[in-house]
């Protein structure tokens, strides 16, 4: 802590440059990532770096809230949602509108340059009072925020609840499904399966007497015929199914009698 309020010591400078670069990198990564999960992680990086910058600027409360609420809660919620929706979903980054990307880059850069120049030259002219002066006005950082929230911004603070209610209710309205059909129980499902007339249980296994791959060999029914159901559909479709007369009698005998050569 220095007495001259405008001084910035080396440690602070190092923190600033490291965190600032990481924060901007995170933001760029968010925009440029193809996968939503990656984007979310990039945002988390930005958030954490911002939190560090807040703390370095004597705003510990804000820094902690940033970590707990944004990085901890909001971003994790994001990730959960993304997991549910499907991690693999990735957006195409191919631009279909002609000139859109070029114009966007140019205008973005233009706005950025204007802002950097403006803020830069504006801040040079602004006098600074130092962080301690800001915090000491109410006897500390947390007290300061508390004072503002419970006096000048009391109404607004209450009003934000309207935002939260609206958001929650909006999410309900857009996603909550009313069930108008009875939910089928296991018993119902089972009955339905038997009623459907399709073979209800497991299909018969293929013949087990083959020496190599028995999948193509049909099972023998008690009446001596074969069951087509025991051979998988693709094999049948390819015509690879073996018929009973193709089976080498010797082979069968060897297997059934269990004797070796």
């Amino acid at each position: 802590m220095t007495d001259t309020v405008t001084d910035v010591n080396t440690g602070e400078q190092v923190v600033f440059w490291v965190c600032a670069i990481l924060a901007v990198a995170g933001a760029l990564g968010m925009v440029l990532s193809r996968k939503a999960v990656h984007s979310a992680l990039w945002v988390a990086l930005t958030m954490i770096n911002l939190a560090i910058l807040y703390i370095a600027n004597s705003a510990p409360f804000l820094g902690m809230v940033q970590v707990i609420v944004y990085t901890g809660a909001v971003m994790m919620l994001f990730l959960f949602v993304l997991m549910v929706v499907g991690v693999d979903a990735s957006d195409s980054l191919i631009e279909t509108i002609k000139g859109q990307r070029l114009a966007a880059i140019l205008l973005g850069l233009g706005l950025g340059i204007l802002l950097v120049w403006g803020i830069g030259s504006g801040l040079v002219a602004s006098p600074t009072v130092g962080l301690d002066a800001a915090n000491d006005a109410y006897g500390g950082n947390v007290e300061g925020i508390a004072n503002l929230i419970f006096t000048r911004y009391l109404l607004v603070f209450e009003l934000t609840s309207a935002l939260l209610i609206t958001a929650a209710m909006g999410a309900m309205v857009l996603s909550h499904r009313d069930r108008w059909k009875e939910v089928a129980s296991q018993r119902d499902l089972s009955i339905a399966r038997f009623r459907s007339g399709v073979h209800p249980g497991n299909l018969p296994n293929p013949g087990v007497y083959a020496r190599h791959n028995a999948v193509d060999t049909p099972a023998i029914l008690p009446d001596g015929g074969t069951s087509d159901l025991s051979v998988p559909q693709p094999v049948r479709a390819r015509g690879d199914e073996r018929t009973l007369d193709q089976v080498d009698i010797d082979e069968v005998r060897q297997i059934t009698e269990g004797s070796g050569e």
Binding site: I97, Q100, A103, A104, L107, L111, G118
Partner: peptide
């Protein structure tokens, strides 16, 4: 996105 682009354009001009 093209609407957003024109907003950015407008913002640049206004600034």
């Amino acid at each position: 996105r093209s609407y957003a682009l024109s907003m950015v354009g407008g913002a640049v001009l206004v600034v």
